[in-house]
């Protein structure tokens, strides 16, 4: 090492200058972070997060438990059990068969979106909602209560952008 390298001062000053630059930028310019809970960054239209099981206009579940999402799933995260629709349940399920149990293991899921491409009934979509963290593994197995959207108009989840993207991908 040369003399100037051995005293380290130019390197230290160089590092301090980088820190100062960022400090001044934050002080007078635009910050590179956002104030998260109040302010949220816009997601890319192709973002794939927490799945939703859609209902149709009349509030009936679209999913008919055909099993194509589960067979398309490369992580084998999806399991389901089907049941036959009984008389009087026509307002709940669109087809004569429905998913009595539908579970996605969010720890296994790799959010690739193959399930929505495989779905023949436009029932499953990935949304821009983040999957919350938890302490217990069991809580990451999302059942129908966490996946199916609500019947009320305000509880519906808008997937129109994603729908367009999936249709184009086909």
């Amino acid at each position: 090492m040369t003399f100037w390298e051995r005293i380290y001062l130019p390197a230290i000053l160089g590092g301090l200058w980088t820190t100062l630059k960022h400090f001044l930028k934050t002080l007078f310019g635009k910050a590179s972070t956002v104030r998260y809970p109040d302010e949220k960054r816009e997601f890319a239209p192709v973002y794939r997060g927490w799945h939703v099981l859609k209902r149709d206009d009349q509030g009936r579940e679209n999913c008919t438990a055909c099993g194509l999402c589960a067979v398309a799933c490369p992580a084998e995260a999806i399991t389901m059990e089907a049941a036959e629709r009984q008389k009087g349940e026509e307002n709940l399920y669109r087809e004569e068969k429905y998913a009595a149990v539908y579970e996605i293991n969010m720890l296994r899921c790799i959010f690739c979106g193959l399930c929505e491409e495989a779905c023949p009934k436009e029932a499953i979509f990935l949304t821009d909602r983040l999957v919350p963290s938890d302490y217990v593994r069991q809580n990451f197995i999302f059942g129908k209560e966490l996946l199916v959207e609500g019947v009320e108009p305000e509880k519906r989840i808008d997937v129109s952008k994603r729908q367009k993207h999936v249709t184009e991908a086909r």
């Binding site: 438990a65 055909c66 099993g67 589960a70 067979v71 089907a82 049941a83 036959e84 068969k97």
Partner: peptide, 9 residues
């Protein structure tokens, strides 16, 4: 076997 499962499972 009606609606019990899918053949590929």
């Amino acid at each position: 076997f009606r609606f019990k499962s899918r053949v590929w499972f």
